[in-house]
Nucleic acid binder design. Structure first.
Lengths: 339, 339
DNA sequence: ACGAGCTTCCGAAACGTTTTGGAACAGGAG
DNA sequence: CTCCTGTTCCAAAACGTTTCGGAAGCTCGT
């Protein structure tokens, strides 16, 4: 590995001059700069980013903490799409990505803040965290480490967040069902520790209220965003509330489970039950029946998150909150109420 | 940020002692060690990994280069599963992951080797690269940077690779079709720059030969692993070789395109055409018809790749090549030849 | 001929660690 | 008492950069 010293010796100038020449400072003669540049290329010199970081205190690296990076998470590609978005924008802005995992074992010993401090990342993007994750609270409130949260509402000088309009998305889903004539509409929600669950529930309530349908808490089930949870919720709905003819689910994955439960009991969607999901995962368009769902653009969320974070890092003054719109995709898991 | 100096001052000892105490050396009194440890906890001291790396020359970081991390790649989650596997094992081994992207724009200016050198990663895992990628050649042959390649055959003291038995997998797929009575079997392959394409083609030929079916080069199409490529290939097959009753495709994604082509021309699988795919992506089990396919465990591949790399880094002497098995999953896109 | 102002260069300090090669001191053997 | 062996600590160098504060040499107007 050739260092700046080797280069200085070879070029017969000081390391200061090398550094300033290669970094485009104006106080070095154009001829020497050229000479140094070609010499650097010849010798395959690459500045050592570690040494540089030590003095500049910047790493041009952003930490990404995604809870869904594990065997389970591969079922839907939400986390992956987010990551792709983050990555694409990061590359464009010439940042690298350091992937932190939140292995449960490790969570106990090291907080996110510690991870970030140790590795000197400039900022972080967090996604898939529970609302009351103690380490999240720490990083947001105790330290004022620059970070942007995905789907977790929190805002300050150093923390931004990006999300989609979940209230409106959910309302659109439920309105679609109401428009088809359904009145008995259940909801399969995620879990209480997710902000999106709260919002989607609110959207559900709002749409019902607007249509003059009373809200019945008994009709909302929690499926934990898991396929299995959807299965059990649908089972519950069919047995405990046979009058229900339509379901709004807070994730497509849970719809897959719900469809299995329906089938198990000899029913089909949309004949027995209209279902609208959330996310528009890849499977949604291909499964049987293809799912009516609310599409959210996770890629864009990641992309925007990276942009926002870098804006903050480079102290451009921009809004700290970004809300993207979602879109109702009508396919064949919903149908007009028959009879 | 409290540094080792602050800590030394506060504890009334030298920074040497702090360093050695915290790193578990034996030449520091147990009492002082305890005292330093508690003081460090109180002050929230975290050793600066950047400074440490500068002197140790180790970063405990592995670079991951996946070409599929972009908007396109999100369609199938192969890259994601690989990443999850890498990540899980890396966490267990206490390594972090630096994600490099191979944005085409950037590819021109910086080679993988340069990226790795600059950022001082200890080693790298590369996946999704073309067989004759010039930067790949560089990193494998010119430098002897420790790396493991996924699905690219190359081996040396510092480069390992993990793959699946593509020859056998392809042969299993084709044998399945032959077992169902098919004799006119076309293949939709990926592209020539992928090692797996060559292997799968060989498996296809082997299975045909074993059954005494002559190999006809006209019957192998290239679909570039893309959905659209599968669509066009199937179109070609139906028009140019109507006698074909079965197809082996080198990826499930291409099967999705192929199914669309079939449908467009008023046909269905498996009635008109039996199809077996490759990968067993998430959609495969849910689409219509559910796909018969060869499952490969990308998660395991990532996991093993990480393990192999770290073995190499910590100079444990292990084999440089890992081949995982694949598995035929029979669903409903294949059926006995009728008539 | 002189100082002012530019251009072009450089020495040395700094960043926060690890590690090398001892130093200081104690206790025990001779 | 002396020498040796451990135990416990420390000063200083090193890692590869960036950057601060100048310094040398040149040009130019007066």
């Amino acid at each position: 590995m050739t260092t700046i010293k080797d280069l200085a010796k070879a070029a017969g100038v000081s390391i200061t001059t090398i550094s300033r020449a290669l970094n485009g400072y104006s106080d070095v003669n154009e001829k020497t700069r050229k000479r140094i540049q070609t010499l650097a290329d010849e010798m395959g010199y690459r500045p050592n980013a570690v040494a540089r970081s030590l003095v500049t205190k910047k790493t041009r690296t952003i930490g990404v903490i995604l809870s869904e990076i594990n065997r389970e998470g591969a079922k839907d590609s939400l986390a992956f799409e987010t990551l792709c978005g983050i990555n694409d924008r990061a590359v464009e802005l010439d940042y690298d990505i350091l992937l932190f995992s939140t292995n449960p074992k490790k969570q106990l010993s090291k907080s996110y803040a510690d991870l970030c401090k140790e590795r000197n990342v400039d900022g972080a993007i967090l996604s898939g965290l529970r609302l009351h994750d103690p380490y999240l609270e720490e990083v947001v409130h105790k330290t004022n480490f620059p970070c942007v949260l995905i789907d977790i509402p929190a805002e300050s000088r150093n923390v931004g967040h990006v999300t989609t309009d979940n209230v409106r998305g959910a309302a659109a889903a439920v309105n679609h069902l109401i428009g088809l004539g359904h009145r008995r509409i259940a909801m399969i929600n995620g879990h209480d520790e997710a902000a999106v669950s709260q919002d989607r529930l609110e959207g559900y309530k709002l749409a019902l209220a607007a249509a003059g349908i009373p809200f019945d808490p008994q009709l909302v089930y929690n499926g934990g965003f898991k396929e299995e949870g959807g299965f059990e919720a649908m089972y519950g709905i069919l047995y405990q509330h046979p009058e229900v003819t339509a379901v709004f689910s807070a994730s497509d994955l849970m719809v897959l489970g719900a469809l299995r439960a329906l089938e198990r009991l000899g029913h089909r969607a949309p004949e027995r039950m209209s279902i609208v999901g959330y996310d528009d995962i890849a499977i949604a368009a291909h499964c049987s029946p293809p799912l009516t769902t609310i599409r959210q653009d996770r890629y864009a969320m990641g992309y925007q998150a990276a942009q926002l974070l870098v804006d903050m890092l480079e102290s451009r003054d921009v809004g700290r909150k970004i809300t993207l719109q979602s879109e109702l995709i009508v396919r064949q898991s919903t149908a007009p109420l028959s009879g």
